[in-house]
Amino acid sequence: MNQVFVAALLSAATAAAARIEPLGWADDGRTFVYLSVEERTREVQLCPFSVRSGTCTERLGTLDYDPKKPLAGQVPSFDAWLKAHPLTAFGPASRTSPDGKATIDVEADPRAPDRGWALVVTREGTKSTVLTSFGDGLGALATCSSFDVFFSPANRHAVVVVWDGVGDATVVSIGVGLPRVGFFGAPEVADQIEAAGASVVRYPFVRSLKTRPRIVFFKGAFEGLAKKVSTLVPDAGVSPADTLRDDVEVVVHLPAPER
């Protein structure tokens, strides 16, 4: 039955108006670490990119970087950060995950086939569109020239660096692990869900949350997973839903924080 668990998911994107130099995965397995280099201004930032939040969790920068020299030793704050967070080297340069179960492809965006692109994940024979240039509002994808794919060591996530053809890049994350749970809210609960074997990914639609109770939606045969997840969310109910996006099977809805 797991064959229908097409894992994937969209998360937000962080834009980097510069050249991206991927360094590796941090030891938590869900932080993609890269350098954002602006050669004209000799500016460089070290970005630990969280696949859950779709943003850089820290931004360490300097204005005195020589991209022609080795990074080590140039920026003390980088050295300190990298020493505290040992990196795992990237796996084989391939669009197929190291475990061989997921493959990422690029297709024309069905809503704008003449100018848009869609990222498609195929897992165990089932295809799932996880990101589109227009549908998800990522304008950079509309004019992209290339994608670079980096799978996480545990095969749960992939980071895609989208190049615009003239040197700028946008970094996006997608989930490729099993099963996938759309989630937002307390990170400690997300950690528990992931510890139970799921792939926690950021769910983009939060507008109606304030009026919703705590509830775990599921579709198809994922009731068991939803009940398991609901035990981790205090006071949460479980409800079937056939209208979830096709890139997620279970979604945890929490009320929006009080303002």
Binding site: S94, R95, V106, D114, W117, S146, F147, D148, V149
Partner: peptide, 21 residues
């Protein structure tokens, strides 16, 4: 008139390259 390239794009290792517009 915007016409996508006839080449649908290609993969090389982990990198996909788009056809020119």
């Amino acid at each position: 008139v915007v016409r996508p390239g006839k080449d649908p794009g290609r993969w090389s290792g982990r990198t996909w390259t788009a056809p020119p517009t």
